[in-house]
């Protein structure tokens, strides 16, 4: 852990410490939990306390869990795309999803899906929630500068007071923000010039739930609600 976390409000570092230790309950615990999700400085203070206290866990002996836990986990996560295993790309279900997503995108957005220009793109990504259904479709225009997103299911629209933010995860680097997604079902983002080349087949687009206006820190602070790999169209 490096650097000091300046916490302007008195008592906030104490609250972070109490939350990290786990002694809060009821409304106090909920309040701290919410802060940890929405307030980057508070989240970092909590992380710092977790780090400070974690050697206490050295005294707790490891106990191998029964195999059933891992099996249940694998069943639960099996609907989620696997970015690495080649087998995944052979999945009929996936191709159906991509085909459906592409046609829905074409219908909804009126794209000409055939490239007219040379240069990188067009690219497409079906952005899936954990359940595996495509909830957003992203289309990156030729040249990589224009990214259009269509939300396919309004159930995943951001809650009041929250925004969804789009992230690019590429080459094992930390996710880079591509901007806040508009609240309407279709939105268009302009990709910064330096990032256009990085949006290529194999990169991952992810959507996180953030405070209004997007992450205040440039890093995702809320849960990732959906993600999917970019593919050549």
């Amino acid at each position: 852990m490096t650097g000091e976390v300046p916490l302007n409000t008195p008592g906030r570092d104490e609250l972070a410490a109490e939350y990290a230790l786990g002694v809060l309950s009821g409304a106090e615990r909920e309040h701290a939990e919410k802060l940890a999700l929405t307030d980057r400085e508070f989240a970092l203070a909590v992380a710092r306390w977790q780090q400070t206290l974690s050697p206490l866990a050295d005294e707790i002996a490891g106990t191998p869990p029964p195999a059933a836990v891992k099996q249940a986990l694998e069943r639960r996560l099996s609907g989620f795309p696997d970015a690495r295993e080649a087998r995944w790309y052979d999945s009929l279900l996936l191709w159906r999803a991509v085909a459906l997503a592409a046609s829905v995108a074409a219908l909804m957005l009126g794209f000409a899906l055939v490239s007219r220009d040379t240069g990188p793109g067009p690219l497409i990504a079906a952005i899936n929630t954990e359940a595996g259904a495509a909830q957003y479709v992203a289309h990156v225009g030729p040249g990589g500068r224009t990214l259009t997103l269509a939300r396919l299911d309004d159930k995943v629209a951001p809650a009041a007071g929250r925004d969804h933010e789009l992230w690019l995860v590429e080459g094992g680097n930390a996710p880079v923000s591509l901007g806040v997604i508009g609240r309407s079902a279709k939105s268009r983002l302009t990709v910064p010039a330096g990032l256009a080349a990085k949006i290529a087949a194999g990169a991952i687009l992810a959507i996180s739930d953030e405070p209004l206006g997007g992450s205040p820190t440039g890093k995702a602070t809320g849960p990732v609600i959906a993600l999917g790999p970019v593919r050549d169209l």
Partner: peptide, 21 residues
Amino acid sequence: VWRNASLFSGMGQSPMSWLIA
């Protein structure tokens, strides 16, 4: 862990501390 793995790198924490938390 599966859902929030992308948040780990920004927290400046050791991985075991993050997991244990």
